[in-house]
Design a binder for these strands. Structure first.
Lengths: 316, 316
DNA sequence: CTGAAAGCGCTAACAG
DNA sequence: CTGTTAGCGCTTTCAG
């Protein structure tokens, strides 16, 4: 395709004049303007974005680290980011990592190699010590709390929310309470869930904890593992409504009534939970994503807490 | 940050040698290799991606046109694309358009301005006449059938699937059948739905057609509009399981039994439908996305049909 | 095996 | 108001 030199030559002007009309910079005489525009239209010319970004040292593109692309929680945050990016005319790159350390670093390298102006971390697996140095190459915002001054965050008080949910279950008379979490104990939210559980129920019975839960099928598996135990739990806290739905389905399949035989509370107010009438701890992940985006483009390192909500529904 | 010249100077070699070790091209003497690598490590150097892409005339990045970012069907296709892109080490840009004509064109311009190697269209609003010319700038693959030889497609036979679903309802004795669709009549799938409806039921009663349905809330609205009619429909085909879930919820709210009082069949086998036991016409959108991605990187203009499945569940 | 030099396509400081 | 020119940072002929 034609380039800016070609346009300049054909219009009988210099490239800087063409550049000026392209970006309507300063003043260009009306006749040259028109001449340039005519050639641009004739040749159906579009400036090369890579060249522009290269020289401007800015891409107006931000990346979103998403360990998995089939996890509804990450999707919710991504949607929040997209909501804002479209308003602000920014582009977003989706960066799947599978929680792989080196794949994750490759993503951060896109900050260093100038391909991205900023990165939003929905979840990570490298330690902050490794990641923080990348902040000198571009804005980094996390969707979890961290006190590193170089990192902005849009976070929720997960610990408080878990405490409140467990307290709720205890108040309703439950003492045998099971729960599900995502990754094993290396995950921050898993740690906080266990900590809150101990805080409310005193001890931590490993048999009541099912890890690696993300989607409905994982909930079915959790149901199978939990609901045939000698001392069957009377309530379960699921780390997502899809997981909760799987548990619900399994429970109904073996003739258990919800909430009479099993109380269920899920997380993130996902559609399936609304459909099934499942109570849910809603961390407002869409808002988290929106806030994260706002921080990125303001190059702000503020720490913004997004309040959580609890939706009480029939399942409890 | 340091650039390739800096590395060359410090390593006492030319930039071409640095480039060679960077891309391990041809042979470089071991001593120079080591010298260059040492400087690279010392300076923590990373090549600028924009400069590389600019000169290589390739970005290994593809865009996915997604009219809305809160629509589960588009999400399913995006997930398919991401599944493959991560395997093939491609990057994906999400391009929200809101079905706005000029915003959509802006996205196609990213092909022309060399920012993208290809574009996958999950849904579009410009006519093919406008869009096809962009195929000369990069690969375009659609997730719907088109016979334009320049456009590859990963499509499903929507018409056949609608026919089968409506036939199923008729066979089960339903004659008052309502249905929901997405956008108004300008959308291809809406047209096909109406056509199939007429084919099976003879005429097309506008009162039984609710448009602009995407999510659960739209289903609630559809339920409200449909289920208080004098001649209440006995069955409804919903263009998505989230919409179906909304209708289900509304129906249960006014004491209707499913399927006794109202049979419901949804679409795309989404989690909420699985949770509620809703029958579903599954166009396998994740596979569609995967196939679309494969076509893009093979630069293939083939037309690949993805078969649909019908999941029979209690709601029918 | 290695380096010089010519770009890729664009912006912006500077001089006029 | 306009043109010249020096880059942005990299790859790749083409000689040697």
């Amino acid at each position: 395709m034609a380039n800016i030199n070609e346009i300049a030559k054909r219009a009988g002007v210099s490239v800087s004049t063409v550049s000026r009309v392209l970006n309507n910079h300063s003043y260009v005489s009306e006749e040259k303007r028109v001449a340039v525009q005519r050639v641009i239209d004739e040749l159906d010319y579009t400036p090369n974005r890579l060249a522009v970004d290269l020289i401007r040292q800015e891409t107006r593109t931000i990346g979103v680290i998403m360990p998995y692309n089939n996890n509804p929680a990450f999707d919710q945050m991504l949607h929040g980011v997209l909501n804002r990016s479209v308003e602000q005319d920014y582009t977003v790159m989706v960066l799947p990592t599978k929680y792989d350390l080196s794949k994750e670093l490759d993503c951060f390298n896109r900050l260093k190699n100038k391909q991205l102006d900023g990165i939003i971390i929905t979840s990570r697996s490298n330690s902050w010590d490794i990641l923080v140095p990348y902040a000198k190459y571009g804005a980094i915002v996390a969707c979890e709390y961290t006190d590193h001054p170089e990192i902005g965050c849009a976070y929720m008080d997960r610990y408080a929310s878990y405490l409140e949910a467990f307290r709720l279950l205890r108040e309703r008379g439950h003492s045998r309470v099971a729960f599900t979490t995502a990754r094993g104990t290396e995950s921050n939210s898993t740690k906080l869930t266990i900590k809150a559980y101990k805080q409310i129920f005193g001890d931590y019975p490993p048999a009541y904890h099912i890890g690696d839960c993300y989607r409905l099928e994982d909930g079915l598996r959790a149901g199978e593992q939990l609901l045939h135990a000698a001392l069957r739990p009377t309530a379960v806290y699921a780390n997502g409504d899809e997981v909760a739905a799987g548990i619900y389905q399994y429970a109904r399949g073996i003739q258990l009534e919800v909430p009479e035989d099993l109380a269920i509370i899920g997380q993130e107010n996902q559609t399936v939970g609304i459909g099934l009438g499942l109570a849910s701890v809603d961390h407002q992940l869409v808002k988290v994503g929106e806030q994260a985006f706002d921080l990125i483009i303001q190059k702000s390192k503020n720490k913004i807490e997004i309040p959580y909500k609890i939706h009480l529904r029939q399942s409890i």
